[in-house]
C-alpha cells in the first residue's frame, strides 16, 4: 500500500510536505528562533530579518516561531481527533455490522439522527454546551465525524460477510481474530485511508475556524486560527500579518485534500482494474 502511494507523484509530494510539517512540529523547540510567547516591546511589527525570518506581530512575538509551535496545536490535535474517531468508529462499526439485529438498528438510527445535522452546526452547538477549549473541540469533532466512520465500516463489514471466503471461514469456524486481522482489516485498510485523508483537512479547518472565533485554544497558545484572528485586528495597518497563518493553513489543508484525492484514486476498487 505504501509502495503504491510512493509511486504516485502527487501523493508522494503531499506525504513529503505533511511529514516535513510534522517533523517541524516535533522539533519546534529546537528549530524555532524564539520563544513563541515571548513579546519584545521594541519589535512591534518588526520587518523580515535574520533574527525574525517572518517578522514579528503586534506584541513583538516571532511569527515563524508561533507558526512552528502552532503545528503542535493545529496539526497534532487534528491527528489526535482523527485517531480517536477512527478507532472508536471502527470498533462500533464492526460490532454493528457483525452482530446485527436490534443493536445494529439502534446504532444505525442514532447515526442517522446525528447525521441529520450539518457537521458545522453540530460542532458549534456542542461547543456551546461543552464550553470553549481544545478538549471541547476534539470531542465536538469526534461526535460530528463518528457517525460517518461507523456507517462506512459497518457497510464494509456487511459486504465482507457475504464474501465466499468468509462463508468458508464460517463453515469451518475459523477463529474470529483470524477473520478480523487476515481477512477483514487488510481489505478495508484502503477505505479507511481514503476516508481519513479526506477528513483530516476538514478537521484542521474546523480547529482553526473555532480558534479564530475564540472558541478554541486559550490565548496565548500559538494556533494558526487564533493568529489569524489576532492579525485581523490590525488588518488595515499591517495586512501582511494575516498572510502567514492564512497561507500556512491553506498549504496544509490543500495538501491533505490532494493526498485524499490521490489516495482515493489509487485505492478505489473500481479504479483497481
Amino acid at each position: 500500500m505504501m509502495k503504491k502511494l510512493l509511486a504516485n507523484r502527487v501523493a508522494s509530494i503531499c506525504l513529503l510536505i505533511l511529514s516535513a510539517f510534522t517533523l517541524a512540529g516535533i522539533f519546534a523547540p529546537v528549530i524555532a528562533p524564539h520563544d513563541p510567547n515571548l513579546s519584545d516591546f521594541t519589535k512591534f511589527f518588526a520587518p523580515i530579518s535574520w533574527e525574525y525570518p517572518l517578522g514579528a506581530d503586534h506584541l513583538g512575538r516571532c511569527i515563524l516561531s508561533r507558526l512552528l509551535f502552532g503545528i503542535r496545536t493545529t496539526l497534532f490535535y487534528a491527528f489526535l481527533t482523527m485517531l480517536i474517531t477512527l478507532s472508536v468508529g471502527t470498533v462500533i462499526g464492526i460490532i454493528s455490522g457483525y452482530i446485527g439485529g436490534k443493536l445494529d438498528n439502534v446504532i444505525m438510527r442514532t447515526c442517522d439522527m446525528l447525521l441529520a445535522f450539518p457537521s458545522e452546526v453540530m460542532v458549534l452547538s456542542l461547543i456551546g454546551v461543552l464550553g470553549p477549549g481544545i478538549t471541547s473541540i476534539i470531542i465536538a469533532n469526534f461526535i460530528a465525524k463518528l457517525p460517518w466512520y461507523v456507517r462506512m465500516i459497518r457497510s464494509s463489514v456487511i459486504r465482507f460477510n457475504h464474501q465466499n471466503y468468509v462463508l468458508y471461514s464460517n463453515t469451518i469456524e475459523t477463529r474470529f481474530h483470524y477473520k478480523l486481522f487476515r481477512h477483514f482489516f487488510p481489505n478495508i485498510a484502503s477505505e479507511i485511508a481514503i476516508l481519513a485523508s479526506m477528513d483530516i483537512g476538514w478537521i484542521i479547518l474546523s480547529i482553526s475556524t473555532l480558534s479564530f472565533l475564540g472558541l478554541g485554544v486559550e490565548l496565548p497558545t500559538p494556533e494558526w486560527g487564533s493568529m489569524l484572528s489576532e492579525a485581523k485586528d490590525v488588518l488595515l495597518t499591517n495586512p501582511e500579518q494575516m498572510m502567514y497563518p492564512g497561507v500556512t493553513i491553506m498549504i496544509v489543508v490543500a495538501t491533505c485534500n490532494l493526498l485524499g484525492d490521490s489516495v482515493r484514486e489509487l485505492f478505489d476498487p473500481k479504479a483497481q482494474a
Partner: peptide
Amino acid sequence: MSVVFQDYTSSVNPRLRVEEIISEPLLR
C-alpha cells in the same frame, strides 16, 4: 465438512498468498 463454491474469485481472499489460503483450515 468443507465446501467449494461456484464463484472461485470471491472464494479466496485476494490479499492472501496461496500458501496462507490453503493453510487456513489447518490453523486449528
